[in-house]
Design a protein around this nucleic acid. Structure first.
Lengths: 112, 112
DNA sequence: GTACTATACAAGCACTTGGTTGTAGAGGAG
DNA sequence: CTCCTCTACAACCAAGTGCTTGTATAGTAC
């Protein structure tokens, strides 16, 4: 499925998507949006971040086509449109847990 | 599998892994390493990058536990140890292609 | 020993990025 | 209309990042 070797342009596109998710606040935003769409203020409150900051991060995710906006009256509701990102987070979380487990095993092994 | 809501620490870890892959040169390095382990100079030649630059990027990937080093004589060979990253790239590439396809459809649709 | 190769480390620079602050614009309440 | 809320935009700053250049270290060949 993936061309091989990957041309530089495609590498840039792929890296761009990873970079869009590679930010803690954005990860938490996506995690929150798993429960369904939410307005900017709701997200800002729940994450303990400023409205401007959340708006900026949402703009990044929207620019990558990961989330979409829906305007309703005074508010703007964001939702996940690229469901694949949730799978990505699951998968990465698996790697993180595996790494933590091996580190824990190391510590336990040397604790004699 | 994923805790919900994701605590800030875990979000940082997940984001860190994404950030490690979110760089074009590192994507291309991982793509090249699909063919098996390679030395720094080999990778630098094939990517058209400097030895120092490649070494630095490999250090980032190794620091995240994505690749591992094996020293043999004068050279150092790197290989992928977290096979999951290849799946990640496949999946992201799918999203990229889907996005490109929808953009293409948009252009075609308005070409009347 | 010297000379050469391969890798990693360090400093400097340009650029990007996350957060803050201030503000503008759109929409609802009265 | 005025006042308030919600969102987005712009400017700014501090911190991080990728690339380059120079160099140190380790191994090989002679």
């Amino acid at each position: 499925m993936l061309p091989h070797p990957i041309p530089e342009d495609l590498a840039e596109l792929i890296a761009g998507r990873f970079r869009a998710i590679g930010e803690p606040t954005r990860v938490r935003l996506l995690d929150r949006l798993r429960d369904g769409e939410a307005s900017v203020n709701e997200l800002a409150d729940q994450l303990g971040a400023t409205q401007q900051n959340v708006s900026k991060h949402l703009a990044v995710l929207a620019g990558m086509g990961i989330v979409a906006r829906r305007k309703d009256g005074n508010r703007v509701y964001y939702r996940i449109v690229d469901e694949g990102v949730l799978g990505l987070c699951e998968q990465v979380c698996g790697s993180v847990q595996a790494q933590l487990a091996s580190l824990t095993a190391l510590v336990d092994g040397s604790r004699i």
